[in-house]
């Protein structure tokens, strides 16, 4: 019976540890929602920051993050989907293919701050884009590219080979087959998978510090060569670089809340979309 008792204790410990993690997740989200929600007002969302960010709103940071995400998607999505199509539909096992795969997994492991340095060196300085939406988006695109490739490849793999064979047997060329009878079915899966990576781009700070982020820029960007404020960097500034931490607490929580809503909101939409898709696509 001693054995039974030990087992009970072990089960208890396992349960406790697991729900400790759950509790932490819940606590973080709960804390930010509870304290961030009261800080949200129409003015907070639509006004320029005032008094070096300690008052006023966060409109330019929201808009900046929005532009960065759009820019990142516009660059990384076509590139990632094209890569995935090549890898899944065309590539044969070869040294070159292995090198591409190694490149993708290496890229996935590069620390975000290193992307920041790289972006600063290549896009800001060498190519002369300056600290700009363009340089920031390119840097973030490099970072999320592996996520998009992997997600897109999964989606392509989910399309049964019988779709390809059926089309080829009718005399379609390979590209006709992919374009007309594989991509349309894989596209929703590609997009949902990619959204998860794009959510990450919205929340990243380190890659944008040296490539686009402005500490305080109370106006909206006019071109892709403009600097912008961004929510994650703004939160970092508010949380670490300001005196009178207690009085700006609502500003911090409000910013964190908006960032959280954007990142998690995007993810939740993707997850719902994906589960719908799974139910729909029975071949």
């Amino acid at each position: 019976m001693a054995k039974k008792k030990t087992e009970k204790i072990v089960y208890g410990v396992i349960w406790f540890v697991t729900y400790l993690v759950v509790f932490m997740v819940g606590y973080i989200i709960f804390d930010i929602v509870i304290k961030g929600l009261p800080a949200i007002s129409w003015g907070f969302l639509t006004q320029m920051p005032a008094k070096s960010g300690s008052q006023g709103g966060i409109l330019p940071a929201i808009v900046g993050t929005f532009y960065l995400v759009i820019g990142t998607v516009a660059i990384a999505l076509p590139l990632g989907i094209a890569s995935a199509i090549y890898l899944n539909e065309y590539s044969k096992p070869s040294t070159f293919t292995r090198m591409i795969r190694l490149g993708i997994s290496t890229l996935a492991g590069v620390p975000s701050i290193v992307f920041g340095l790289f972006g600063m060196g290549l896009f800001v300085l060498a190519l002369g884009f300056g600290k700009s939406i363009l340089a920031g988006s390119l840097t973030l695109a490099c970072m999320v590219l592996p996520t998009i490739i992997v997600a897109s490849e999964e989606a392509l793999k989910a399309v049964p080979d019988s779709m390809r064979e059926g089309s080829l047997a009718l005399g379609a060329t390979k590209w006709q087959t992919i374009y007309k009878n594989v991509l349309p079915y894989a596209l929703p899966g590609m997009l949902t998978g990619s959204i998860l990576g794009i959510g990450r781009a919205a929340g990243e700070t380190a890659p944008i510090i040296f490539t686009v982020a402005a500490t305080l820029l109370p106006r909206l960007p006019r071109s892709i060569f403009d600097q912008v404020m961004a929510l994650p960097y703004h939160l970092y500034m508010l949380a670490t670089q300001m005196p009178n931490q207690t009085t700006i607490k609502p500003m911090q929580y409000g910013t964190a809340f908006v960032l959280l809503v954007i990142v998690l909101g995007v993810d939740v939409v993707a997850i719902i979309f994906r589960s719908r898709l799974r139910r729909k696509n029975k071949w």
């Binding site: 975000s112 990243e204 994650p232 960032l259």
Partner: peptide, 11 residues
């Protein structure tokens, strides 16, 4: 739990 991975590191 995977939500945790989605939280931005600055948050």
């Amino acid at each position: 739990i995977e939500l945790l991975a989605a939280l931005p590191s600055v948050v």
